[in-house]
Design a protein around this nucleic acid. Structure first.
Lengths: 248, 248
DNA sequence: TGCAGTTAGACTTATAATGAGTCTATTAAA
DNA sequence: TTTAATAGACTCATTATAAGTCTAACTGCA
């Protein structure tokens, strides 16, 4: 079967930048090892071609393609993918003119086991601090995704979906530090995340304290009351977290 | 001539959302009237197909296509186009599966005369407050562009490129009000835009005051020292403007 | 000419937000 | 028992912000 057009057309692919947070609250990235050329055996972002057609229903949406490719190549299903940017420079793919729409997501890595499949010989969570060389322009895509992630955590409580259901403020802070890449003053962080003048959607678990396996007192355990947060947002509340790099 | 592929491919287009500011400091939008079906004679965003090829040099970049289409359909050349979002829902174009990468820009409308050409029967600056019905999903694209513009003017001094070279603080404020869609306390705006503790890249024109054709005292005239601003940015300065809606 | 209305620019005042710490109690490890 | 680490409650100084007042300078109108 073949498809003929009056004018040349590009292929359109998606790439998925899926950040993970492991149980040590370190940042990871979901990668696959390519089964085929080009860049055979090279690590790359999961992704692939968008299914399209010129007749109704015209194939799948870009977003649907992103979810599908992610599932096929890594076995992972995420709740939410956000469009990041579209990369379409001539020459970015040796196979021909390929335009790629990048999506990104953020999950707990332990909840999502990476299993290679389809065009992926392997799939794995890799430490963000020690990424291998990647195929195509994927390093560029990732650096743009990280930038976006860093700006997003300042005005959306996405960090809260990445911790275990019950967590301490120190854990939350460590997560922020891992994503932002710098240390935060712990008192100021606590003040911003647990303001005293308004109802807070980060609620203490009454009776529980941390099962302490480190120095220091046992910490209060909290949970994220998502419903309360969404109600507040509906009423015009907007989350903001302003913690800059510690100076010293 | 025809082009045959093993798998179906989408067409890729660009759309340009070009905001303009007129001499009354009102927001405008650059639109074209379509020469051909679908949506013949309907107003739409300027845009069109990206030229591609599978052999090197693989055609033009997405950005280049945006500049080219804008020039062909409206005669307008802009300095800077920023990628906004990629719209690829099946069904968004009756001609087939068409994926469109939207770009946006911001210019002084009087410096850019709109002249219809190519696929555009007409091209014109339209008041943003009274937009006509538009083709395809262009209303959706525009509302996303406006949202982006509103968030951008808070941390980038883009407003300053939109005024005449020499301007008063009131004019600058009126521009901000036009884009944000609400009134700003004039004293607070002045304090934020002309801070007293640091060198300022908005500099008074020593001898000049406004040639007053309205009530009130003649206002000091300023100019935007772009070089000084860029130096400050290079040294880590970041512009911020926090003026919320007046309460009263 | 004189008054009314408008506005730039300089202030003020109260409140809130932020950076950078201190201090204490509580724990694990040495 | 001592030492080092850390949660949590504070403090303090500084800066940022919202909202307004006051005055002088102008235009337009009577």
């Amino acid at each position: 079967m073949s498809f003929t057009y009056e004018f040349p057309r590009p292929s359109v692919t998606i790439d998925a930048v899926v950040f993970g947070v492991n149980q040590e609250l370190e940042l990871e990235l979901l990668l696959i090892k390519r089964r085929d050329d080009p860049f055979k055996d090279c690590w790359a972002l999961p992704g692939g071609f968008v299914n399209v057609a010129d007749t109704v229903p015209q194939g799948e949406s870009l977003e649907a393609a992103a979810y599908r490719e992610l599932r096929e190549e890594t076995g992972i299903k995420v709740d939410y993918l956000e469009q990041l940017y579209t990369f379409g420079e001539p020459g970015r793919d040796p196979r021909g003119r390929i335009i790629s729409v990048a999506y990104f997501a953020l999950v707990r890595s332990k909840d999502h086991t990476a299993i290679g499949g389809d065009d992926a010989k392997e799939a794995a969570w890799m430490s963000f601090k020690a990424l291998p060389k990647l195929a195509f322009d994927h390093h560029k895509i990732i650096s743009m995704a990280l930038e976006r992630l860093r700006s997003k955590i300042r005005y959306q409580p996405i960090g809260l979906n990445l911790l275990p259901e019950k967590f301490t403020i120190s854990q939350l802070r460590k997560l922020y530090e891992a994503i932002l890449g710098y240390k935060i003053n712990h008192g100021n962080f606590r003040r911003q995340i647990l303001p005293k003048n308004r109802p807070n959607f980060i609620k203490p678990v009454r009776t529980l304290r941390e099962k302490s396996n480190r120095t220091g007192p046992p910490a209060q355990i909290y949970f994220f009351d998502k419903l309360l947060y969404e109600n507040a947002v509906a009423k015009g509340f907007d989350f903001k977290l302003n913690c800059r790099k510690i100076s010293q």
